[in-house]
Write a protein that binds this DNA or RNA. Structure first.
Length: 834
RNA sequence: GGGCGGGUGGCGGAACUGGUAGACGCGCCAGACUUAGGAUCUGGUACCUCACGGUGUGAGGGUUCGAGUCCCUCCCCGCCCACCA
């Protein structure tokens, strides 16, 4: 095959893309008996256009997928669409286009754009989460989980827009007002569906230790998010109110003798019962104000501490003293018991609150060092460290840690409390008042289900599909949930009594869709189950999962939770869905700011592909820096990557005619040997770089190799020609994970009839990756004074002799005593002189 | 406030296990080919110094024959979480 002089990426790239597709080389499950690798990137929400973050994300997976294939694995590398969601629904409200229509258009565009980048996907497994054949299994999972008590209905707090008269998402609340109508947003308690993820809080926490190939920061973020605290609950009986007592949760029961009052969340069930008539007005006003504020405002970064006295007193379990009961904004109703004991001397928040309201301080802990802190009323801040208990009755003199254990035991014995473990993690509320999502397969029948708990739609009636709608009339973003407006959909018959019933009008959070999609790719057409458990045994867990670190605590926790559920249901063999997680950094604009419309600093992938070709885009994005690091876009560097590819092309072109048929069995000496050495070092280093995800250095090593080859000049002898031919072939081969189109084109020009990615990753010759002459640095007292070249296997004595023969070294050693001679094989020697 | 990253030439970055700091690329300088080049090729390029030599990885200290890398103290930048008792 001939080769043209100019590198013209556009034409050759689409040619190879179609050839790969025709040959079906990226379809998984074709390599009988080969070990398997499942490489996955987080599936995208199909907006109309890709951005550079997508390009980078998929590229990381793509390089690995191609590389593993060359390493002999049967690789599964699928792609699909997280197709439900808010943007399409918002667009529908604004423009009146049906979300399904818009989403379908977007998918076509997005997919076409992805294809221009040459990703090695198995498109035969494409999944669309908005397709009934997919979301029916969301419904199936929901019913299974409900049977197990893992999905339930509860009352919980939502953002209620006072203008739109509807529930809105957190992202739609800006500074306490609705971003659409700018009316105030308030908290409102409403019935919601939730998944009992907290059942597995401890397991999810424990299993983090097994995720050794996850980035430390993600593991830490999850640990923090689950937020286990070990402490005690202690009971405070309300003075003078029949059968009223409250429990506080504390991790610092050792400070309890310093407790001078207790504080409840305004929403605490006891608040209204214990408030004295004199305080009623103030308390009600405060509670009302809190309800108006919404959580954002109330507990935000610089919300001041505010509270009010209820008039009630509670009995301190240890001292029997009566301490006042307050309510305050900073106490959270949904954490611990919704009540805290206040120890202003030893807690920062309590200190600030006590100071603001003139409440008393009492010291209960002294520094273990014996340092005196002075009178507690004059403290500038709380003393929050552990220490030795003081003024703590029988516990005085004990150290904090011991005291905690002893006091917990005492409370348990007296029936005034118990040790307790609390988690920050909350159950996952997943119902949404949206149209564009999975319908929750529940109906309400007043006759069979007067409590309104919901009756499951029978499995054989799944899927409950979304009805056709008049977009303009239904998707208004206002009032009751869209589906509630479709009377012939929402009105149905009760599966139990066949009488009239209403369907649940809420839909599922789109995070449900992304909990298990990776398993759907295994058998995307399965219609008896979400997926075939047999295939799951073959392919799970996912070997490599690539996505943004912003998913640390939501998606990746839901995903792990769901994996456990799938195992319980006998569908999947594994607890943990993913072996190795890679989180990629952000691609910023050239100005260092996040690419966005606002700054006008976005660079569209399509622009780069059109101008330079996909391979340049690929090489640049990989070369720009390590995958987990952010980088700023640089047009100049793109140009540099393009230049590099042109140079590869030029080298191949230049020697094409003379070397493409050159065969030589050896020996290789002189220049031919140099060429081969460069080639084999390149194979070794690129492979090692890819293994450790250092794609930028992989590219750099190929550049370096090319520099070396070029400086060696045109081949003359047959041996040299054969060496150049090998060099070109190997360059194409090791470059194919990075720039696959260029690689295949050059390889074909050199006579290849295969695809480079279907080759085995080349083995390097170990004899060729070490030079036979080594340059040693010669140091005197740790400073480099000279270099010497010696044979590879030179002994310490030989290197020392060579070093001492250097003028500079001789001069530096004159009149000095060599106290020590350090020899580091193949690197340096150091004369330590005095 | 907490957690996690990160501070290395003019810039992006390299140095994987303590061993010649600055690979590779961009930019810049000089030259070649050119009517011209923002095309391509060749050479140079950490800083100070004419040179000998010296100085350099955010600052300061330490360990070591030897520190970008390990230890201690501190400063700055970015991201995430944030009144969780």
């Amino acid at each position: 095959m001939s080769m043209q002089e100019r590198y013209e990426p556009q034409a050759l790239e689409s040619k190879w893309q179609s050839r790969w597709e025709e040959a079906g080389i990226f379809q998984a499950g074709q390599r009988e008996g080969a070990p398997r690798k499942y490489v996955l990137e987080m599936l995208p929400y199909p907006s109309g256009k890709m951005h550079m973050g997508h390009v980078r994300n998929y590229l990381i997976g793509d390089v690995l997928a191609r590389y593993y294939r060359m390493r002999g694995f049967d690789v599964l590398h699928p792609m699909g669409w997280d197709a439900f969601g808010l943007p399409a629904e918002n667009a529908a409200i604004k423009e009146g286009v049906h979300p399904a229509v818009r989403t379908a258009e977007n998918i076509i565009q997005f997919k076409a754009e992805m294809k221009t980048l040459g990703y090695a996907y198995d498109w035969t497994r494409e999944v669309n989460t908005s397709d009934p054949s997919y979301y029916r299994w969301n419904q199936w999972f929901f019913l299974k989980m409900r049977e197990r008590g893992l999905a339930y209905r509860r009352t919980s707090r939502v953002n209620w827009c006072t203008g739109c008269l509807t529930v809105i998402a957190n992202e739609q609340v800006k500074d306490g007002v609705c971003e659409r109508c700018e009316k105030p947003v308030v908290d409102r308690d409403m019935p919601q569906w939730a998944f009992r993820i907290t059942r597995d809080s401890q397991a999810l926490l424990d299993n983090l230790d097994t995720l050794v190939q996850w980035p430390e920061r993600i593991v830490k973020a999850q640990r923090e998010w689950i937020g286990r605290s070990d402490g005690v609950e202690a009971e405070f009986v309300i003075d003078g109110v029949e059968n009223a007592s409250l429990r506080v949760f504390t991790t610092r029961v050792d400070t309890i003798y310093g407790c001078t009052y207790v504080v409840l969340a305004p929403e605490h069930a006891l608040t209204s019962r214990i408030t004295t008539p004199g305080q009623q007005e103030a308390v009600e006003a405060f509670v009302a104000k809190m309800a108006r504020q919404g959580m954002e405002q109330r507990t935000g970064p610089d919300a001041p501490k505010e509270g009010v006295f209820t008039g009630a007193y509670a009995v301190h379990p240890f001292t029997g003293e009566k301490v006042p009961v307050w309510i305050a904004n900073f106490v959270l109703a949904d954490y611990g018991t919704g009540a805290v004991m206040s120890v202003p001397a030893h807690d920062d928040r309590d200190f600030a609150f006590a100071r603001a309201y003139g409440l008393p301080l009492r010291q209960a802990i002294a520094p273990a060092s014996g340092d005196e802190l002075g009178p507690v009323d004059q403290w500038e801040e709380a003393y929050t460290d552990d220490g030795v208990l003081v003024d703590s009755g029988p516990y005085s003199g004990r150290i904090s840690e011991r005291a905690r254990a002893d006091m917990g035991e005492w409370l348990t014995e007296k029936g005034l409390g118990n040790t307790a473990i609390t988690y920050r993690q909350k159950d996952w509320g997943f119902s949404r008042q949206r149209y564009w999502g999975t319908p929750i397969p529940i109906v309400y029948c007043e006759k069979c289900d007067p409590q309104g708990e919901g009756i499951a739609v029978p499995y054989d009636q799944l899927p409950v599909t979304l009805p056709e709608i008049d977009v303009q009339a239904v998707l208004t973003g206002k009032g009751e949930p869209p589906l509630a407006k479709i009377s012939d959909w929402v009105n149905t018959t009760c599966p139990k009594c066949q009488g009239p019933a209403r369907r649940e009008a809420e839909t599922m959070d789109t995070f449900v869709d992304s909990t298990w999609y990776y398993a759907r790719y295994l058998t995307p057409n399965e219609d008896q189950a979400p997926f075939d458990p047999e295939a799951a045994r073959a392919w799970l867990p996912v070997d490599v999962y690539v996505g943004g670190p912003e998913h640390a605590t939501m998606h990746l926790l839901y995903f792990r939770f769901w994996s456990r559920v799938m195992k319980e249901l006998g569908l999947s063999p594994v607890d943990e869905p993913v072996e190795r997680l890679i989180t990629q950094g952000i691609v910023n604009g050239p100005d260092g700011r996040k690419m966005s419309k606002r700054w006008g600093n976005s660079v569209a992938p399509a622009t780069i592909v059109n101008r330079y070709g996909a391979d340049t885009a690929r090489a640049y994005v990989l070369f720009a820096g390590p995958p987990d690091r952010d980088f700023d876009w640089s047009d100049d560097q793109v140009e540099g990557s393009y230049r590099f590819l042109k140079r590869v092309w030029a080298y191949a072109y230049q020697h094409h005619a003379a070397t493409r048929d050159a065969v030589h069995d050896g020996p290789f000496e002189g220049k031919a040997l140099e060429i081969r050495r460069a080639t084999h070092k390149c194979i070794k280093r690129v492979g090692e770089s890819i293994e450790r995800l250092s794609f930028n250095t992989a590219v750099a090593f190929v550049m370096e190799t090319l520099n070396t080859l070029q400086s060696l000049g045109a081949p003359e002898s047959l041996a040299e020609k054969a060496a150049v031919r090998e060099a070109v072939q190997m360059l194409c081969t090791v470059l194919t994970p990075i720039v696959p189109h260029l690689s295949d084109e050059i390889a074909a020009a050199y006579g290849a009839e295969d695809f480079t990615v279907t080759r085995d990753w080349p083995a390097f010759d170990p004899a060729l990756v070490v030079d036979d002459v080594i340059t040693y640095a010669v140091q005197v007292n740790g400073k480099v004074r000279a270099e010497v070249k010696v044979a590879l296997d030179a002994t310490a004595e030989q290197v020392r002799a060579a070093a001492e023969a250097e003028d500079k070294i001789r001069a530096a050693l004159t009149d000095k005593t060599v106290r020590k001679f350090v020899f580091v094989p193949r690197r340096l020697v150091n004369f330590v002189v005095g």
